[in-house]
Design a protein around this nucleic acid. Sequence first.
DNA 1: ACCAATTTGTGCGTATGTATG
DNA 2: TCATACATACGCACAAATTGG
Lengths: 241, 241
Amino acid sequence: MKISHRSLYLQARDEILKLIKEQFEPMQKIPPEQKLSNQLGVSRNTIREAIKTLEQEGVLFSRQGVGTFVIASKKNLETTITTLESSTNIIKSHGYQPGTKNVKSDVIQASAKVKSKLTLEENDNHVFYIERVRTADGEPVVYVEDYILYKGGMENEYREKYYESLLEFLEKYDMKVSFSICTIKAVISNEKIESKLDLKEKQALLLLKQIHYSNTGIPVLYSESYYLSDKLEFNVVRKRG
Amino acid sequence: MKISHRSLYLQARDEILKLIKEQFEPMQKIPPEQKLSNQLGVSRNTIREAIKTLEQEGVLFSRQGVGTFVIASKKNLETTITTLESSTNIIKSHGYQPGTKNVKSDVIQASAKVKSKLTLEENDNHVFYIERVRTADGEPVVYVEDYILYKGGMENEYREKYYESLLEFLEKYDMKVSFSICTIKAVISNEKIESKLDLKEKQALLLLKQIHYSNTGIPVLYSESYYLSDKLEFNVVRKRG
DNA sequence: ACCAATTTGTGCGTATGTATG
DNA sequence: TCATACATACGCACAAATTGG
């Protein structure tokens, strides 16, 4: 008996994605649904669900009566903003060695803004605050401020075990993040950020403000990330409504 | 007889979306599939397809055995970066009156970069270039450079008819855009852009570099748009892979 | 202009799995 | 333990679009 069973159509998705990475270039046609159904030994409906998922992820697009085609290159696949990844993985997928600098963490009083983002109760004022600079091959690439829904003792656990990926850390506290709502802005660096990121002069930074939700729909983490966008790339497939 | 028949599940999607906008707040539970099936008079499968579509659009999320919940607010819905909209519509949905300034257009020799983006043949060097500043309530908000796959005489058609939305213009030439691949960057303004956007000092701008594809998968338009991101907001729902 | 083959799209019915209370 | 409700999966039939003969 399987404890956890990744659903069939997601397994099919993974298989098809593997096929694409191995065998197909952008704009090439992939095999018809019936063929994939036979090959992978699942129903055509399941294949269709898998393909639909990949379509939404911007990997494939289908034309009725013609076939299904690859959109994204391997590089694009790894930098899609619609896939929620830890900075660790974002840096890795760009081919850099991820690292961390200047970690600061504390249990603090939540500001009104943070309270509203995390929908805290009137009387609940504590959040676990983490501030980090992430590096790629030793160079600073992103400065992050995290505000986490506080659970007793988490600051000690964090400091003792030292977690590279915050998303993994949160899983220990029943706060597995399943999605985030992200606002994208461009901002100009201020003195604080320049010192954090070792910038010599004013720079444009990509600011991602994100509310992260658990699989039960509860906001568990609010974060503001300042990316040097010449080092790290973000892509998205946009479709007409 | 219907000429064009928007499919049943997409109609259902639209109905459900309407319901959400009218009646439901973020994180609220929507009625069960069976109920919606009865209400809208379509099969439960069709409802499921509609819901799945909205899930992939970042509007809903479902939890097995529990229900389906609203993620995005109305405001979020209208500013999702994954929906490809003309600048005209983006400005409108932020509640401003869209306008256009400083239009420049010409048939020009494509640079090597533009040629590669549009995958032009060796001997094909012509693109139709348009440069515009879009305004919101009269204030400049975005500067756009467009490079269009050239078709004979299109520059005259464009100048005569004056199209607000480029995407609509392209449809006249069998180049209906169905999706784009977009790279997101933050850049600092240079003198040229400052003069175009009437900026008094250096500013951070959101730069969207986009290759737009027709429904047959042919690149028809490459564009670079510089947004003042404090006026126009972009959101995205990011999901874990 | 037409037909046939291929391929994706739509829609239904049904059975079974899984989470919640 | 049971009922409810949502999720997953399969099979089938037919519609619609496209391509090529």
